[in-house]
Design a binder for these strands. Structure first.
Lengths: 252, 252
DNA sequence: ACCTATTCGAACTTTTTCGAACGTTTTTTT
DNA sequence: AAAAAAACGTTCGAAAAAGTTCGAATAGGT
């Protein structure tokens, strides 16, 4: 068995389960634990996972949008709050908006006024946030739960009949060359469905997401209309990202 | 099980519920309480939680579970609790169950153990209740919100491909002649879809629902396997409803 | 044949997990 | 409110599991 083939399978397993074990993998591939550790080391160098004792887990940054309950979120909370406040300026009463899953979009949801508004989302925490806001029309494409997001949607064509005005999109990594990336493949179909149906696409991401690439690219930067980030983005990066089709805006 | 995986789950539980218990976690993971305490110590060092006697609470200010939800229907709560406890006896690990929208089924959801189990629901409050229970596989047919329920038959054909073992059904009225009734027509399609796909149908309803008919009939009493109600149902009514195909059970 | 990358063995170190005895806090009983 | 009981926590240390380092054997490519 080729090392590259093992790596591929390890990553797939990681996507599905969120964590892998050295012992399990060594038995699965019929190689020594030593070899698996070397595999994991190489994958960690590439930033595709994070090593732990006994195995590895999806690396913190990349797993973040899938793990809205994890603490790393609150690390950049003030930045996310600033981004959310900024994004709110684009939301008017009677809009039809889609909120992608993530902690930044959750901050947007928290600040949505209880006014006539249609919100699409697959994020359970966002739904929870909107339960009390009775004037907001909530629309949920179904699915099964992976952590706090409903994914694996069988009825995405239903989504295609909806007319979304504004999409607030999240990503694990934003990179000049690789575009918008995520770590888990299941989210991609949903993001793409939202994107093809949205008239205006706002990508919300704190500065730590920039110049990073996760495993899978789901869109190029050109497909985004507005990139909303925080003041922490370096001037150098601002210069590089300002050039594209997307307008770059830094929330105060 | 990986230590890192435990930590992750502990944190998720902590933010969903506000607090965790050592004893509960040690049983959940099959490790000694000592190990859980060491886990909690490490997480506390990172500032991710605060230790208490017997467990830990979220490090932030909120020791209370986040409950910005609407005023629940607390009418006849003790009866509903009794019915829920009774209904739980029909739920085994690895079951695939559907929880119809309602306050009685919400009581069932609250009492579901965090064990391997697949739960279908359209009730937002039930979803919220299940957010912290990571071992429960949650499946949501989509829709748009009407109060706290997702309705809309767009994804009902998807539902027809699912194989539900047990359905816990609610109704506004239960009547010998008019069968199971509700006031709003939107819920009917969903209930019917659940019913055609369920092998066993349990109708949960407190005694005040009996001998009442709401506007719209969605099923006859013969389609139900078990009728679960509380002790408040009059003997006269018991005699009348016992005769049908459905078994009548009164929760204590 | 030479170089390089992969895989693994073996001795050694670290981390994790847990048992058991002994304090401490919380709850119940009197 | 004091005493007793139960539950929880701490310390020490040991056993098991996982990781590390070093170096050697193997296989592929040039």
């Amino acid at each position: 068995m080729l090392a590259a083939a093992r790596h591929q399978i390890i990553l797939e397993r990681l996507l599905a389960e969120g964590a892998v074990q050295v012992s399990e993998l060594s038995e699965r591939f019929g190689v020594t634990p030593k070899t698996i550790r070397e595999d994991l080391e190489k994958l960690e160098e590439k930033g595709l996972l994070r090593r732990t004792h006994g195995g590895a887990v999806a690396s913190a940054e990349e797993a973040e949008p899938m793990l809205p309950l994890q603490i790393p979120n609150t690390k950049h909370l003030s930045e996310k709050e600033a981004i959310a406040r900024h994004a709110l300026r684009y939301i008017q009463p009677n809009d039809v908006i889609a909120l992608d899953a993530g902690s930044t979009t959750l901050e947007i949801a928290k600040r949505l006024p209880n006014e006539p508004l249609t919100v699409l989302t697959n994020d359970l925490l966002i739904m929870q946030e909107l339960i009390g806001k009775d004037r907001i029309r909530l629309v949920v494409p179904g699915g099964y739960r992976q952590r706090n997001v409903l994914i694996g949607n069988e009825a995405l064509d239903w989504l295609n009949r909806l007319n979304v005005q504004k999409l607030f999109l999240t990503a694990t990594g934003i990179h000049e060359k690789y575009g918008l990336t995520v770590f888990t493949g299941e989210l991609i179909d949903l993001k793409k469905a939202y994107m093809t149906n949205a008239r205006e696409i706002y990508c919300v991401a704190d500065h730590t997401k920039f110049d990073r690439a996760a495993l899978l690219t789901f869109a190029s930067l050109d497909e985004v209309d507005v990139l909303i980030t925080d003041a922490g983005l370096t001037d150098d990066a601002v210069r590089r990202y300002e050039g594209g089709r997307a307008t770059l805006e830094r929330a105060l």
